[in-house]
Design a protein around this nucleic acid. Sequence first.
RNA 1: GGGGCUGUAGCUCAGUUGGUUAGAGCUGGGAACUCAUAAUUCCUAGGUCGCGGGUUCAAGUCCUGCCAGCCCUACCA
Length: 679
Amino acid sequence: MTRRLLVTAALPYANGPIHIGHLVEYLQTDIWVRFQKLRGNRCLYICADDTHGTAIMIRARGEGRSEIELIEETSEAHQRDFAGFGIEFDHYGSTNSEENRTLCHQIWQSLRDANLVVQRSVEQLYDPEAETFLADRFVRGTCPKCGTPDQAGDNCNCGHTYSPTELIDPVSTLSGATPVIKEAEHLFVELEKLHDFLSEWVSNSGALQPETANYLKGHFLAEELRDWDISRPAPYFGFEIPDAPGNYWYVWFDAPIGYIASTQQWCNANGEDLADWWKSDDCEVHHFIGKDITYFHTLFWPGMLKTAGFSLPTKVHIHGFLNVNGKKMSKSDGTFVKAETFLKHIDPSALRYFYATKLSSRVEDLDLGVEEFVEKVNSDLVGKVVNLASRVGKFASRTGLAPSYPDDGGLFQAAAAKGDEIAAAYEEGEFSKAMRLIMELADAANPFVEHAKPWEMNKDPERQDELRDVCTVALNLFRQLAVYLAPVLPELANKCGDLLGEPITSWEQSQTPLVDRGVNKFQRMMDRVKTEDLEAMMEESKDEAAQETDAAATNPFNDSDQPLKDEPLADEITIDDFMKVDLRVARVLSAEHVPEANKLLKLTLGLGGDETRQVFAGIKAAYDPEKLVGRLVVMVANLKPRKMRFGLSEGMVTAAGPGGEEVFVLGIDDGALPGQRVH
RNA sequence: GGGGCUGUAGCUCAGUUGGUUAGAGCUGGGAACUCAUAAUUCCUAGGUCGCGGGUUCAAGUCCUGCCAGCCCUACCA
């Protein structure tokens, strides 16, 4: 029975080029879609550029042009890159389209009608790091009544209740940042009102991998769902909220709606009805995404769809990240490879196949080992699969295929019988299993040719019929492999079709051998991947990264806007406020690891003379304790001591950066003395 | 600290509801062949199935404890 499937891959952000990390997802999706089409299902592969948000706005301004110009250029580049890897969308749109605007309005109205939107302009603690308002339970601090530290946002063990804004020394439990009191008009979606529905959907719909369902149940659904801050004040590149002038939808509102809008555009162009794809029980909706955006696609998005009466995802396929040689992609290592750069050096089929051998239905990171890549592609594809055709190609173009399929010892039948199992593996997203099964077939096929010795037949005019039979078997076994591999290697399927004069269009072609026809002149189907090519590719990637760094260095005004975006400026203070903070130069007298803490170092800081302070600092990932000893740092010296699980912390070392390994402790120029105050 | 996943030959991985001498591919060693992109074929080497307990007639497979790695989450005053 023919199924109808609407498939999406996440919308790439229109702020940068596609790289090999992105390609995991678009290739995984492309393979799955091609498989569905090969099986005869009606399947649409929908994607679009995600074009809104502050980053696009800032970048366009920096480049002195309009956002529209920027996103159009990026869209072209993205589509060119995808096409280069054989990724075939049925439609590639943009979130900055009239169709999307209309759908946003429509879905917004549904949220309004369902009474899920609230406007708040309360004084509330706001976490500048996490960029979110903090509900009571996400703030802890010292009780204003009894002085007990580390109490909940709304009440203390002493029985006193209060508002979180009354807390002394409040801390965000989300980021650890000090919350600021902020007044703003924001619109919120009260997701909690959909809690029952979401719990039910997460647990029972079958749309999520078990590990994802568990994650959501444990982290979000176990407690009250936070309101979703869905508006951003001007200036913002996006869609203005119709009933809240001066406010724009947060990019994560209109981005997933882009899936529907892009489908709408396809429908318009093809005379189809959107409802058949997004509001029909007969149509499956499949999202492929990375693990980083799980939250948006499994809570907010189903909530929006449900409320607006669209189909819920049949399945959300979540994949992990790409590592290269066991490490995160890195610009300085040359492993941060752009799609465009890859294509200059290596056949995209190689990457398609390699990813296929690595992908499963689970949320696991996958590793591209350079050695493994070369070995696997060469030995599997060139040595086994292509070789099968190559070794009889020359003979076959002379003999053609036999009138009826000869005895092959049951090889073709056995491989045909494997079809269902291979198909099931594709269907479940277990591509690595599918590839393994297919290679088993290839391993069985080559010995047939070996033992038949067609080269001997070739020399004997009496044995030309035998030779033709061997060619018929070898080429049919090859074609069978080409059909099974067609979702992964469409180019190979095309070349096989050309060779035998019948294009590969259906999975069913793997079940019946081709006979009684000519064979075209054999043409080389795939080249071996050379380690030198990979090395050259990574060299070039390294150079590109270096050039970007140079460009940034020669242009001091080209600093990224990311840090400010991550942590917006705090509210204005007076000089008196500033003077309350006593910053002092201090020398690191000792530094040691705290065994139980993952991120903390225990420091003893000297302020001159015998004056010392013990301070815990979250810089373990970035600094070696030994190398800190003797250094001068700047500390907050009059901070109220704070009892931590590991001991008392009597101050704070100043540092910048987002955290982890990216932490940079403030130093001071030579000449400063421990104990001196920073004014 | 909490949650999850993984740990099987040098490498990448299979091992179905527990059942005879634990498998494949690649790599290594030896040989054959020459149709093929130094491809292929045959033979061969190589594993206390992370470690320790337990259940069982029988455990890589189930239970439990520990160890290691990865991911998520928290601490980062």
